[in-house]
């Protein structure tokens, strides 16, 4: 078991290294794409700044707390895209390009991350961390809430990344297309930059279990500022783990529908 994990991890890191090397061949282009990936964070920052400059803002959330939430939402968005580009992945499934990944002696899910991620999204991750750090330097948070928040963020991000793998496979099986997934991810990220309460119960459920991006943005931000207690924290943590397992198992099952030569 442990040997298996190490083998897969080594393969993933090695693939990451070569993805980076090939990405950096065109250095100017790499720089431009990294800058582009920070624009989503910039857009969130401007949006929140405008809201708080002309109104009292959103109830229960100060300006800097909202900036932290924006930072987290954009970090998870960039992590998703760093790990998997659904459009590219579904296209590879469709034209039979996934065959090569299946011939390798590694977990096929790891092969997906190794082949279909987009390295330039590191720019979005860095800008998200930067905004979060700036927000935290202006608000009072304790060490325990930071650790708890990081835990929620980690498991939440894992669940949402696995969800993207699963939904890409569902999309391939049903429609043989995944062009719209990138767009849906962007819209849900934009939605998860704000407190979920403003979307009502339906919206909250949608962003918690339907497209669980809230697990890695809203709830960790709530934990960071102690807006939820530790029982709630544990419940969200368990939910993230359970969803991750469900999405992983379903993805493995859906991979059986892949036919060489696509469809």
């Amino acid at each position: 078991m442990f040997e298996d994990v190490t083998k897969n991890l080594r393969f993933f890191l090695l693939s990451l290294k070569y993805n980076w090397l090939s990405f950096l061949v065109y250095r100017t282009q790499a720089f431009v794409w990294m800058v582009v990936s920070t624009f989503s964070t910039l857009s969130g920052l401007i949006s929140i700044s405008v809201i708080y400059s002309i109104s009292g803002g959103l109830p229960g959330w100060s300006y800097f707390q909202m900036l932290a939430l924006v930072g987290m939402a954009n970090m998870v968005y960039s992590i998703i895209n760093f790990m998997i580009g659904p459009q590219t992945f579904v296209r590879a499934l469709r034209n039979g390009g996934f065959d090569q990944a299946l011939t390798k002696p590694y977990d096929p899910i790891i092969s997906i991350f190794a082949r279909y991620g987009t390295p330039y999204n590191i720019g979005g991750i860095i800008s998200g961390i930067g905004l979060l750090a700036y927000a935290l330097s202006n608000t009072a948070v304790n060490a325990l809430s930071i650790v708890s928040s990081i835990l929620l963020f980690g498991f939440g991000a894992a669940a949402v990344v696995m969800f993207l793998v699963m939904i890409s496979l569902v999309s391939y099986v049903l429609f043989r297309s995944g062009n719209y997934l990138q767009w849906i991810t962007a819209i849900t990220t934009s939605a998860s930059q704000y407190p979920l309460a403003i979307y009502g119960l339906a919206g909250t459920l949608l962003l918690t279990v339907g497209f669980p991006i809230g697990l890695a943005s809203f709830y960790p931000a709530e934990m960071l500022f102690l807006k939820i207690n530790y029982v709630y924290f544990l419940a969200i943590l368990v939910l993230s783990v359970v969803l991750f397992i469900i999405f992983y198992k379903t993805s493995k099952w859906l991979l059986k529908f892949y036919t060489s030569g696509g469809g």
């Binding site: 109104s55 009292g56 803002g57 959103l58 109830p59 704000y194 403003i198 919206g203």
Partner: peptide, 11 residues
């Protein structure tokens, strides 16, 4: 929805 919330809680 975001701006509706902002208006709702605005004076």
């Amino acid at each position: 929805l975001v701006w509706s919330a902002v208006y709702y809680f605005s004076s």
